[in-house]
Amino acid sequence: MIRGIRGATTVETNDSEELVSRSHELIADMVHQNNVKAEDVASVLFTVTEDLNATFPAKSVRKLEGWTYVPVMCMREIPVPDSLGKCVRVMMTVNTSSKQNEIEHIYHQGATVLRPDLKS
């Protein structure tokens, strides 16, 4: 079965090192909490809010051992008025036997306000 795993985090500043570091923490947690293996990943999509442009957060995936060939892409989030700023969102599409309600969606830092109904 193909499932989507969601995640999001925020950064303090538009800094390339912080963007990659926070994105890596998020991706690593998503992988760990959902027992994901690189060969089971179809793709990983990142979006960033319009106030983030220092680097591509998808670079964080390359820090994971064995993830060299996983397709990744970055896009800009829709600039909805009063939405959460300095935010990196992730959609990881994976092949898994987990049921929909067994997927652990991960929200770090200030992004926990996006889905208070999901504990991560």
Rank of each mutant, 00 (worst) to 15 (best):
A8W: 11
T9H: 02
T9E: 01
T10C: 03
V11H: 03
E12M: 13
E12Q: 10
E12P: 01
T13Q: 13
N14L: 14
N14M: 08
D15K: 08
D15Y: 09
D15R: 07
D15C: 12
S16A: 10
E17H: 14
E17K: 14
L19F: 06
L19N: 02
V20P: 02
S21R: 15
S21Q: 15
R22C: 12
S23V: 00
S23R: 05
H24P: 01
H24W: 05
H24L: 10
E25R: 07
E25G: 08
L26I: 03
L26S: 05
A28V: 06
A28N: 07
A28T: 08
D29Q: 12
M30C: 06
V31M: 10
H32W: 14
H32L: 15
H32I: 11
Q33D: 09
Q33M: 15
N34E: 06
N34D: 06
V36P: 01
V36K: 01
K37S: 11
K37H: 09
K37D: 11
A38R: 03
E39K: 01
E39R: 01
E39T: 00
D40R: 08
V41H: 00
V41Q: 00
A42I: 13
S43I: 07
V44M: 10
V44H: 03
V44R: 02
L45C: 06
L45R: 08
L45M: 12
F46T: 03
F46Q: 01
T47G: 15
T47L: 14
T47W: 13
V48R: 11
V48W: 07
E50K: 11
D51S: 12
N53D: 12
N53H: 14
T55K: 07
F56M: 09
A58R: 05
K59H: 05
V61A: 01
R62K: 09
L64G: 02
L64H: 04
L64K: 09
L64R: 08
E65I: 10
E65R: 13
E65L: 10
E65K: 11
T68P: 01
T68N: 13
Y69S: 15
V70F: 07
P71G: 14
V72N: 06
M73P: 00
M73K: 03
C74D: 13
C74E: 14
R76E: 14
E77G: 00
I78L: 15
I78G: 04
P79L: 08
P79N: 10
V80R: 13
D82S: 12
D82E: 14
D82L: 15
S83E: 09
L84M: 09
L84D: 01
G85W: 07
K86A: 09
K86G: 05
K86E: 04
K86F: 12
M92G: 01
T93A: 07
V94W: 06
V94K: 04
T96A: 13
T96R: 13
T96W: 10
S98H: 11
S98P: 00
Q100E: 14
Q100D: 13
Q100P: 08
N101S: 15
N101P: 02
